[in-house]
Amino acid sequence: MKKILVTGSTGQLGSELAELSAQYPKYQWIFADRTKITLDDLKLLNNQLNEIQPDIILNGGAYTAVDKAETDKELAFKINHLAVEVIARYTAENNVKLIHVSTDYVFDGSSSTALDEKAETNPINVYGESKLAGEIACMQQNPDSIIIRTSWVYSKYGNNFVKTMQRLMDQRDELNVVNDQIGSPTYAADLAQAMVTIFESAEWIPGIYNFSNEGEISWYEFALAIKEFGGYKCNIEGIPTSEYPTPAKRPKFSLLNKEKIKLIYNLDVPYYKESLKKMFV
Rank of each mutant, 00 (worst) to 15 (best):
L44F: 01
Q48F: 01
Q48R: 04
N50M: 12
E51W: 14
I52S: 03
I52C: 01
Q53D: 11
I56R: 02
I57A: 03
A62R: 04
Y63H: 05
T64L: 14
A65D: 13
A69P: 00
E70P: 02
F77K: 04
K78W: 10
N80D: 09
N80K: 09
H81V: 08
L82A: 13
L82Q: 09
V84W: 07
E85W: 08
E85H: 08
V86E: 08
R89S: 13
A92D: 14
A92P: 07
A92M: 14
A92I: 09
A92T: 10
K97W: 12
K97L: 13
V101P: 01
T103Q: 02
Y105K: 11
F107A: 12
F107R: 12
S112E: 14
A114G: 03
D116E: 06
D116F: 11
T121H: 09
P123G: 03
I124M: 07
V126R: 04
Y127H: 10
G128N: 04
A133K: 06
E135L: 06
E135G: 01
A137F: 05
C138H: 01
Q141E: 15
S145P: 06
I146D: 00
I147C: 01
I148E: 05
T150D: 02
S155G: 11
K156A: 05
Y157N: 15
G158E: 11
V162L: 02
K163W: 14
Q166H: 09
L168Y: 10
Q171L: 15
Q171D: 10
R172T: 08
